[in-house]
Each structure stands twice: as structure tokens, then as C-alpha cells.
Design a protein around this nucleic acid. Structure first.
Lengths: 181, 181
DNA sequence: TCCGGATGAGACAAGAGTGTCTCATTCGGG
DNA sequence: CCCGAATGAGACACTCTTGTCTCATCCGGA
């Protein structure tokens, strides 16, 4: 009857995405297991969050792979990326705020890898002349994270339709609010 | 020797902006007072956060007033707004994530007021033909919050220069990443 | 059927924060 | 100088959560 660790992890991701302060007990109940069993899979809350971090990073990297960031116009690659990353946005939002707590402690090097790949995508767009150069790749990366988190929350709170998620984020990030002539 | 409550509040804002999980004891020390005195001013942590919420809302509204959101082009008004709101961005970022915790409980109606005013600004921009209409005012408002929070964190972590804060946010929000022809 | 691993339920201690209280001290105004 | 209000320091109980442990039960495979 061995509990599927990955399934527990995804259940935890779903709950913590909605309520970042959920208890280990609540996480366990959400997964349909007991707190004892949860502890048998994850040494503690910290380990659970770390596992979620690894999961989130892995899924983001998978999304990045699927988006083929080196193919075609950078804008199209970004569009594909956001579409691919949408299912992870909630988890990403959770980790994004949770990361504020990991002050200085050992950061998962996956974030650096992810940052580097995203930054590279934006830089490619700049070098190809698609993107403007007065917004640094680092800021565009940061802004992407922020917009993904905002978008995820806006969707869960009903302020934005789930179907519009990708469009809203990509259009704002690429084109901004100003109307084109 | 009556402690200046407002000064304590601002000190707490500064600390909690950096470390959202700071204890009441740390908040007190940061303000240069004892925990007992802190408790004499704010009934508890919850009351403190509520007070910070009110402070943040008040400062945002003051920034909104100072930005004269009804004057001139909406884009210029938005530019003025971000410039005015910059000093509050850190506090706003703290409250933005803290708000995730106030699930369903009584929300400070100030947020609704603020949302309404921001939404109105974006709507005005749409109606004047400045802003595109496929991005809803609600989403633009949400995105503004998100970018302000991202910007504040990016600055505190040194990924973006403080002087670029306003430019990065406004330019991205208005013009997007795509290079204009 | 029997056995062993996995699970659930619950008890338990420990730690962190919090809220409250007391008491001595200090500061400032009258 | 004196008094009262404000403060600081610390003790204390309480709550919440966590991490650990035990024991009974359950389930599937041999």
C-alpha cells in the first residue's frame, strides 16, 4: 500500500499554494494520509518544502525544455514558456515567497540554473533586436516570476479568468499596457 | 518619554519588509523598545500587522493623491504614481504576501478603495485610447502590485539598482519588453 | 493461511512565540 | 525636589506546531 511519494508531494503543492501556512497535519490530511506517514516520507516541514522546491525547479526546467527557448523568435519562445509553465505557477508563487525566508542559507542551485536560462532567453531577444535593451535581462526574469505569481493569485482569487492567464502575462510582459499605433 | 507610535510602526515596517517572520521581540528591539512597551502600543502581532496594513494603505493613497491620477495622460499619471509609491513598495510587498494569510477574514476595506482607484486609472487610459483594451484593468492593477513587489525584492537583493526601480517597473508595465519599431 | 512491511491513531516531550503580569527604575513636569 | 506616568526586565502560563515514539491494525505476497 506504499504511498506514492510524488502524489503526496503534488497534493502538498496544491494545498500550500492556497495556504502557505498549512500545518503538517493539514498537509497529511490533504494527501489522505496520517501525519506519521507523512513524516516517514519527509523528515520534517523543512524537508517537505525543500522537496517542493526541487519539484518546482524540475517542472520549470521541464517547461523550459518543452518551450524550446533557442528556437525561433524569442518572443514566441517566451510565449511557449509561459504556456508550459502555467500549471506550475501556483507552486512557483508559493516558493517565490517562501524563498524570502531562506535568507542567506543554502539556496537550491536550481534557481541559479533557472535564472541563467531565463536570463539567456531575454538576452537572446535583446541581441536579436526583438527586445529593448534598457530593461536588463535580470529584471525581466524577476518580472516574469512576479507576474507568474501575481497571475496565479489573481486566478485563484477569481480576479482573472484561468483561460486568460497566459495571454495576460505574455501580452503584458511583451507588449506592455500601451496601445500600439 | 512616550514612545512615538508612528516611529515604532515605521521601524516595524522596515524590519518586517526584510524579514517577514520577525518575532515581536525582534520588532521591539528594532524599534529600540522592550517587548512590553511594544505590547502596550499594539495589542498583539495581529494588531501590529493590521496597523501596518493601514499605514501601507494610507501611504499608497497619499502616493495616489500626489500622483494626480486624473491629470494628463494616464501613462504619465502612472509614471508619477510609481515614483511616488516607490518608498512604500517594500511594505507593500510584505502586505501583499501577508494578505495571502488573511483568508476570507475581514479584509481592510482600504484595499478595495485602492484597487478601485488604480483600476479607474487603467480604465481611464483605456477609454482615452492610450492603453490597450485586451488587458483588463483588474489584471493591470494586479500586475502593478506584483511588479512593485518583485521590484522591491529585486532591489533589496541587489539584482536591480535602486535608482532603476521606477524606470524598470514603469517601462515594463507600459511598454513591455518588445522593442518599438 | 501466515508473515512482514506499511499505515493510522494517539500519546508525549520539546521548542518557539505569544500574551499577561509584576516590580523596580527612570524620566520629565510641576 | 517629588510624584506619577512610562518604561525595561523578567517571569509565567498558554497555545501551536513539530518531531518522535509506541502499538494496534491492515494489506498483500509467499
Amino acid at each position: 500500500m506504499a504511498v506514492d511519494r510524488d502524489q503526496v508531494l503534488r497534493s502538498a503543492a496544491g494545498l500550500l499554494t492556497r495556504r502557505a501556512t498549512a500545518t503538517m497535519d493539514e498537509v497529511a490530511r490533504a494527501a489522505g494520509i496520517s501525519r506519521a506517514t507523512l513524516h516517514r516520507h519527509f523528515a520534517g516541514r523543512d524537508a517537505l518544502v525543500r522537496a517542493l522546491e526541487s519539484l518546482g525547479i524540475a517542472e520549470c526546467e521541464a517547461a523550459l525544455d518543452a518551450a524550446r527557448p533557442h528556437d525561433g523568435p524569442a518572443a514566441e519562445a517566451l510565449r511557449r514558456l509561459v504556456r508550459e509553465i502555467e500549471p506550475v505557477a501556483g507552486l512557483l508563487a508559493f516558493l517565490y515567497t517562501e524563498n524570502q525566508l531562506f535568507e542567506g542559507e543554502q539556496q537550491n542551485e536550481g534557481w541559479a540554473r533557472l535564472d541563467a536560462r531565463l536570463t539567456a532567453l531575454f538576452r537572446r531577444g535583446q541581441e536579436s533586436g526583438e527586445f529593448r535593451i534598457d530593461l536588463t535581462p535580470a529584471w525581466l526574469t524577476e518580472a516574469l516570476y512576479g507576474l507568474l505569481a501575481s497571475g496565479a493569485w489573481a486566478v485563484t482569487e477569481g480576479r482573472v479568468a484561468r483561460n486568460d492567464f497566459t495571454h495576460m502575462i505574455v501580452e503584458l510582459l511583451l507588449g506592455g499596457a500601451l496601445r500600439r499605433e
